[in-house]
Each structure stands twice: as C-alpha cells, then as structure tokens.
Computed example of a mutant assay.
Amino acid sequence: MMDLGRANKILGMQIHRDRNNLKIWFYQKNYLKKILRRFNMHDCKSISTPLPVNFKLSSSMCPGNEVERKQMSRVPESSQSIHGESWWRALDSCKEDFEIYQRTSDVTLCYGGLEFTVRGYVDSDFVGDLDKMKSTTGYVFILAEAAVSWVLKLQTIVALSTTEVKYMAVTQACKEAIWIQWLLEELGHQQGKLFVFCDSQSALHIARNPAFYSRTKHIGVQYHFVREVVEDGSVDLQKIHTNENLADVLTKPINADKFIWSRSSCGLSKT
C-alpha cells in the first residue's frame, strides 16, 4: 500500500477541510457541470424543485396507439427507455432535473460541529407506484449536522392502509438505526438511545403497544422488529409534525420552501 497523502477527491466527489473549525465539505460541482455539458444543458435555466407537487407517473402513460408510438420513435435513442409521451414530457419538464443540477452545482454537503448524536427521520407515501400499487419508504439519518445515510425504495408488499405503510417504513428505519449504532460503537463512539422521528401517531402506537392486535395480525412478523428495539430502549420513537419531517423530501414532490429547508437541514448549503 502507498500513502498518497490527504485525499482531495474520491468517487467523483471533491473534498475540502477546515480542521481548525472541525468541518469537512463534499461537493460534485465539476461532475455536475460535466453531466450538463454531456446533455447540452449547460446553459439551461435553473429551477427550485425537481417536480411539481402531486406529480405522479404510471405505465398507463405509455404510447397507446400507432400515432403515439411514431411520436416516441423520434425521441433520441439514448432516451428510449422513457416509455411514453407523458413520461418524455415528464423528463422534458425534467430537463427540470438538469435545471436543478444547474441551480445546485455549488451546493456542498458539510459535516461539522461537536454534536455527534444520530437522529433519524422516516416517512412514506401511500400507493405511490400506481402500477404495482405499492408504497415507498424514505428515511434519512443525521450525524454531525448532515445526512450520513438515506434510503428511498419501494416496499416489498402491498399495504392495506397508510398506518401499515408508515409502520413498515418505521421498521426499516429502525433496522438502519441499529446498524449505524453498531458501526459507531466499532469506531469508538457510544450512542446510547437513538432517536427516530415519524409523523404517524398510529404507527407509533402500534410500535409501542404489542396488544394492538386486531389492526396488526395481517402484518408480516418481520415488521414487528420495531417493537423489540423500542421495548429494550435501543430506539426512541418520537412523533414529529409533517412540516418538520426531513424524510418528506424523499417520498413526494414538495414545494420550494420545504425543499430548500429539507436540503439545508440535511447539511446541504451553497458555498
């Protein structure tokens, strides 16, 4: 092995340090500019959010007749995986994605300060996937004033209610919380009780009350893992208002003010 000195770049991310103030920044300005140039979007305007509020896509938007298929045949070959005109319009409005890149190319992820306690935030949508009728779990964990772990993924089963969706999302977040706790302990940082915040009072009630049987008997056993970690004190589940839930940004399109607040609360700020 060779010691190449202090790292200034890793996996496309540039690194800047301020050891006196105990801060470190990660950013991808050069990479984002490269992507914008690749798709000829380097002169595009900038926008504040990726998608309009309540925006959803489904396979029903795929071409339904020969005329629509011919229209889609004119879409550049590298974008043929976008299934239909509505999807292409979404991607076109999603030039918005590139326009977000343009606006946020100088945004950095900053870790720092003396606060070294993990906080988790979890959220979910309900039947966000209109094709498979499945919902989405999103969670983010904050350490040293910035995000260290985040997930956005489709749940594996179809839930019957918003409470069930939230409960399953909380379970997945608690699994991640325990893993982070183990990792930090391996690195010599004892965490004690971890806090996970959720905006569903009913999901928290199920997690805290094993006797709440009639509402939970159809939920898979693996999702009741959360009850064990709450009972033994490893995780402290707390109610949080939706407006203060950082994970909202992962599960649904939100307005510009909430988007910017969520981004800042996850440690992302302009240089």
Rank of each mutant, 00 (worst) to 15 (best):
K193C: 07
Q181V: 05
R19I: 04
K70T: 10
V140E: 11
G5L: 06
F259H: 14
M41L: 01
Q28T: 13
V151K: 11
K132L: 05
H241A: 11
K166C: 01
N20Q: 11
H224P: 09
Q80D: 05
G188E: 00
R215W: 09
E145S: 14
I142A: 01
D248V: 00
C62F: 08
N40D: 03
D248N: 15
S269E: 12
D97R: 07
H16K: 15
P210N: 00
D199M: 13
M41H: 00
D18S: 08
V140D: 13
N209A: 09
D125W: 07
V127H: 07
V229Q: 02
S58L: 05
Q191P: 02
C62Q: 13
Y167I: 03
M168H: 06
P76T: 03
K34C: 01
A90L: 02
W150F: 06
V148L: 04
F98Q: 00
K45D: 04
K193N: 06
S234D: 05
V67Y: 11
N245T: 08
S79E: 04
S264F: 03
S124H: 12
T242C: 10
Y139D: 09
K34T: 04
C62G: 08
W88N: 02
I157D: 15
E186C: 14
V107I: 09
E185R: 02
S78C: 08
